[in-house]
Simulated assay, not measured.
Amino acid sequence: MQQQADKIIQTLKSKGVRVTPQRFAVYADLLARSDHPTAEQISSHFNQDVPTSSQATIYKTLQALRDVGLVREVLLEEGVCRYDANIDPHHHFRCQSCSEVEDIAWEQFQTPNFQGLRPGLQVNHYELTLHGYCDRCQSA
């Protein structure tokens, strides 16, 4: 457990992020999750028992982590920004019924052919978002 905490602290410091209890807690929480929570969900999680962090602090922490490349914003639905500490290239599947989000391995799909794009467009990054129904919702 201490080894994991030391690794998180070292990672934050290596990116020039000042280590605060909130930054440590938010980053550690995101590393342990795969559900791509919203800032509101993170705030609610931390403040379940005793309010310890304002929503503004959570947003500022997420922005700081995003700015140094430790967290990425995931936009899978209109008006909802989710956060992911998995910064390796990957795609996403979003269930249209329960809104659960699941990572899909990058290698699962072949690289699209960008030759057909109109002249002048240059692709620097892409990811696929698949929408459908998860196995839990299909069986319900």
Rank of each mutant, 00 (worst) to 15 (best):
M1A: 07
M1G: 09
M1N: 09
Q3M: 13
Q4M: 10
A5M: 10
D6N: 12
D6F: 10
T11P: 08
L12N: 07
L12E: 06
K15D: 03
G16E: 09
G16T: 11
G16R: 09
V17D: 08
V17I: 12
R18Q: 09
T20E: 05
Q22S: 11
R23P: 00
F24K: 01
V26C: 12
Y27I: 04
A28R: 00
D29H: 09
L31K: 00
L31D: 02
S34D: 15
S34T: 14
S34G: 14
S34P: 11
D35P: 09
H36W: 00
H36V: 02
H36E: 01
P37N: 04
T38S: 04
Q41L: 02
Q41A: 02
S43E: 04
S44H: 13
H45L: 14
F46N: 07
F46M: 10
V50Q: 14
S53G: 14
S53E: 11
S53T: 11
S54W: 01
Q55E: 15
Q55S: 14
A56G: 11
T57F: 06
Y59V: 15
Y59K: 14
Y59A: 13
K60R: 14
L62V: 12
Q63N: 15
A64Y: 05
R66V: 14
L70C: 03
V71S: 05
R72D: 04
E73V: 06
E73W: 02
E73N: 04
E73S: 06
E73H: 01
V74M: 00
V74I: 04
L75R: 01
L75H: 01
D84N: 03
N86K: 01
N86T: 00
I87Y: 02
D88G: 05
D88S: 06
D88C: 04
P89S: 08
H90R: 07
F93P: 01
F93R: 03
R94G: 04
R94N: 10
C95K: 05
C95V: 05
C95R: 03
C95S: 10
E100R: 07
E100G: 06
V101H: 00
E102Q: 12
I104L: 12
I104A: 08
A105P: 08
W106A: 12
W106K: 11
F109P: 05
F109H: 11
T111D: 03
N113K: 06
N113M: 06
F114N: 00
Q115P: 00
G116D: 08
G116S: 08
R118A: 10
R118E: 10
L121H: 08
Q122P: 04
N124C: 13
N124R: 13
H125S: 10
H131S: 14
H131F: 13
H131Q: 15
G132T: 09
C134R: 05
D135Y: 11
D135E: 15
D135R: 11
Q138C: 15
Q138I: 14
